Amino acid sequence: MAVAGVHVRTSINVVARANVYSANEIVRIFYEVVSDLGMNVTELAEIQPIIEKGLRAWLAMRKLKAAYLEVFDPVTHVVRCRTDLNIVYTSETNERYRTDIDRVKTETKSLGRYPGCKYRVVVSLADGAPDVEGWDTTTLGSVDHLTQRDVGDVIDTAAVQSRMFTWS
């Protein structure tokens, strides 16, 4: 019985660490995108604790489906570009923590520059996700006028993987 308990504890610790790592890496990727697009990262830094609190809660409950960084014109509110991080949950026990930040940087440098634009972080949640203080209900802006590009897998852990798409 004790051996099984050790195995269960180890699996829970791997999942917990993977969730925290993934939340941190989503924020890190969004910092890269904001910076590479020529926008001010200060606003993201100010709301980072709220973003992380939500991401960690929803990842732990397996309710986060995707995280988006939406860049829009502050006058017309037209979406200029968007970065999508789609989440896939796995049940592996091999501990690993990888982020392909070079792939992220290469892609975001090709998106252009958007000084003067604003951005926001939006998430898509599965049914039953709890409310998290600081987050409000909203809808994504239309990207019908933009072209989607599949960047590939950018976050890989034992419990969570994320594939990146960009719209520009």
Rank of each mutant, 00 (worst) to 15 (best):
N13L: 15
N40W: 05
V123L: 08
V123G: 01
D84V: 11
Y89R: 09
K65C: 13
G5V: 04
V8I: 05
W167H: 15
A60W: 00
A57I: 13
Y119G: 01
A2N: 08
V151Y: 05
L146D: 01
G38I: 13
V132F: 04
F30W: 08
K65V: 15
V78F: 04
R28F: 07
S168K: 14
P115W: 04
I26W: 01
Q148M: 14
D102Q: 13
M61I: 09
R62T: 04
G5I: 04
R80M: 13
E25I: 05
W58R: 06
L111V: 05
D131F: 14
V20K: 08
D84H: 11
I87H: 00
L146V: 12
R103A: 12
D136C: 12
R98L: 12
Y97T: 08
A66N: 10
V75F: 13
E95K: 15
A45K: 10
V34R: 01
G54K: 07
W135Y: 05
R96S: 05
I155W: 02
Y21M: 02
V122I: 15
D73N: 15
A16R: 13
D153K: 13
H77N: 11
L44W: 03
T166P: 06
S91K: 14
I47E: 02
V88P: 03
G134S: 06
V154F: 03
G38W: 10
L37K: 04
S142L: 07
E70S: 15
R96I: 12
V8W: 06
V15Q: 07
M164P: 00
R9V: 10
R113C: 01
R80I: 07
F72P: 09
D131P: 10
D156I: 00
M61D: 12
L85Y: 01
F72Y: 15
V15R: 11
G38K: 11
K65Q: 14
T99E: 02
L44P: 01
T83D: 03
S11H: 11
A126N: 06
G116Q: 05
I101G: 02
L64M: 07
Y114L: 12
S162V: 05
S22C: 01
E43M: 08
R82H: 07
C81H: 04
V14I: 11
T42D: 02
A129E: 00
V154Y: 00
M1E: 02
S110Q: 08
A60I: 08
D84G: 04
E25G: 01
R120K: 12
D156H: 02
V78H: 05
D156M: 02
K109A: 06
Y21H: 05
S110F: 10
P74Y: 03
E52F: 15
A4S: 10
Y31L: 09
D100R: 03
C81P: 02
P49N: 03
G5M: 10
I87M: 11
F72E: 10
E52P: 04
V75T: 11
S22V: 01
E70N: 09
K105D: 08
V160I: 13
V3Q: 14
T10I: 12
S162N: 03
D136A: 15
D100E: 03
F165G: 10
H145E: 05
Q161A: 11
